[in-house]
Amino acid sequence: MSQAASVWLVLVVAVMTANLPFVNERLFVVGPRLRPDKAFGWRLLELASYAVLTWGLGSGLEASIGQRAPQGWEFYAAGACLFITLASPGFVWRYLRRGKLETPHG
């Protein structure tokens, strides 16, 4: 796989996995369905887990292309902020927009 394809693959996976906790009610996609709504703590745990898995994918692809570059704490802090930013559409849909659509008009 080329370097450009690897970058695009990681970006697409990051966007999908960042929004996944907010668009389904199952634990880690295949777990039991929670009623009436999955707690926010579960969503944060899923978000952190998906961030680690996405980082692992990127790290593996980087290692397959060549030698991995050493990273400091700044890299991980920026990566976490980027992942949270990528999750904003799902968060807005789940907690801001969807809540307004479900409230009865009085």
Rank of each mutant, 00 (worst) to 15 (best):
M1F: 08
S2E: 12
Q3L: 09
V7Y: 06
W8Q: 02
W8A: 10
L9C: 14
L9Y: 03
L9V: 13
V10P: 04
V10N: 02
L11I: 14
V13W: 01
V13C: 02
V15I: 10
V15Q: 00
A18M: 02
A18K: 03
A18C: 01
L20S: 05
P21T: 08
F22A: 07
V23F: 10
E25A: 12
L27R: 10
L27P: 05
V30F: 13
G31F: 04
G31I: 05
R33A: 06
L34I: 15
R35N: 12
K38E: 12
K38P: 05
A39N: 10
G41W: 05
R43S: 12
R43L: 10
L47N: 08
A51W: 15
A51N: 14
V52N: 02
T54K: 04
T54A: 08
W55H: 10
G56D: 11
G56M: 13
G56I: 13
L57C: 11
S59I: 04
S59E: 15
L61G: 04
E62L: 07
A63W: 13
S64A: 15
S64V: 11
S64N: 09
R68T: 08
R68W: 03
Q71G: 00
G72S: 09
F75E: 12
A78N: 13
G79M: 02
C81L: 13
C81M: 12
C81Q: 07
L82C: 05
A87S: 13
P89I: 13
F91K: 07
R94C: 10
Y95L: 09
Y95Q: 05
R98P: 01
K100G: 03
L101E: 13
E102W: 01
P104Q: 12
H105Y: 04
G106H: 02
